[in-house]
Design a protein around this nucleic acid. Sequence first.
RNA 1: GGCCCCAUCGUCUAGUGGUCUAGGACACCGGCCUUUCACGCCGGCAACACGGGUUCGAGUCCCGUUGGGGUCACCA
Length: 518
Amino acid sequence: MIRTRFAPSPTGYLHIGGVRTALFNWLFARQHGGQFILRIDDTDQQRNVTEALQPILDGFRWLGIDWDEGPDVGGPYGPYFQSQRQTRHEAAVKQLLDSGHAYRDYALPEELQAEREAAEAAKRPFTYSRRWMAQTEADAARWEADGRAAVVRLKMPRTGSCRFHDQIRGDVEFQWSQEQDHVIQRADGTCLYHLANVVDDHDFAITHVIRAVEHLSNTPRQVFIAQSLGYELPQYAHLPYVAEPGSANKLSKRKLDKYLKHPDFKKLYEHGLRIARAIGHATTGETFNPVIVDFYRTVGYLPSALVNYLLLLGWSLDDKTEQFTRAEMIEHFTLERVNKSPASFDPLKLWAFQQREMVALPLDQKVPLLVPFVRQAGWGAALRPAELDDRVRQIAGAAGDRIKAAGDILDYPEFFCADEQLVMEPKDVEKRLRKPGAAELLRRFRDMLAELEPFDAATVEALLRSFLEREQIQIGEIIHALRVATTGKSVGLGMFDALAILGRQSTVQRIDRALQLL
RNA sequence: GGCCCCAUCGUCUAGUGGUCUAGGACACCGGCCUUUCACGCCGGCAACACGGGUUCGAGUCCCGUUGGGGUCACCA
């Protein structure tokens, strides 16, 4: 049974790079009919773990990445919170101590620091002298009487090398001489990450450790721990990290200001910002950031588009396939085809994926995604649910591929506001409505609209065409004025669709109001 | 700095010694369509980091250089 895991720390947000790692773990497990486990790498000093974990779990659920064992679902290998596994970790430390693979060290931090500096001054790699390694109980007792406290360190090999096979990088070799006697347990008894990690992976029967390449150089010490404990080694696969837009640096959630100088990133961000503001979503917190998954949910992206994009960030099937359904991803994914080099996050390519999927989404499925945004913006409060659905449906149908994220429905306030509250864009009023002759044409066309029956797009268009014929004018001479008068601005849906959605009464009232304003 | 990893268009990538005058996608530029916007269609620009080998032949194998990155905690 293949078992993979993703082990987020409860930080309150899901990083895009982390999601990709989780996705690859998930795909690998699903493909092999295995299991995907979520383990929470919390430390005892973190507070509000539950609260900080929720957005992460929500994020995974939204993305459709489900876990077979972990928080909320439990499982036979629990607990799934690292902080609740202390006794297991302590037992492992004891075993390591008993077998001579670890030792109690009584060195003071300053003493260790002094050794480090001496090594540096002599330009030689630092290796701890083990001066304060307790060889006997008498040593320990004496030093403790002096007020010293012990940490537990790994007694790492100092010759030879550590070799292991990486599913992505091939055979890897590290010299033991480069390794340190890492601390695995603090003086207060709490255990450190690498120890806990190895023990938990073993306890969870993890077969494949698929993680970011940052951990590659941590692997030797983990191999040492695992082997010393008599564990069978998991298969390792170290994924390249996700880089910043236009650079090879690792993508970081802390560099939003820097990324906003990148035009494509800025475009993505500002689009989201417009929507977030319209629905009153906080935009100052740490999570409103395109590096964090929550951003995309807030703005109304399709999770399948994000996942599809992330899949291709470091992995490809062949020279042309780009769109994958979930089933296809599971069928085709292989670690062998994961790239070795970092892939930088391209905001516009993600946007293109989103756009493509949104356009392909049938109206029946699109409308339910749009309606919540309208509600959150506080629009259409006077409409009954069915009326609102219907209105949104009409707009979405007419908007077609203009709506690229669910939040884009908020580009059309003109269809939700009262006629007398329509906001008129001054520049457009100036250019289109105050244009010589426009008002007079508009007045004449208004009188014809007022009598039109039925008031649908095709009939309105036929009316306008005959009007053009009679007046001997080009369509451009009236349609811009008509658009500004009825929608307040110069861009929007097809004119006839827009008028049909507004209906005769609103259309006429809005034209009258516009003419009065002139 | 030590150790380790990586290196094809601006970006994601295909390419596993000859079919590569290097293919696809996004972006960009030009044109068409058009009541605005968006879409769509057609066309275009654009890459094997450099230097040595190996080989009849190298983007593809080897070495070096350069560049980029990761990692070196009583963080995770």
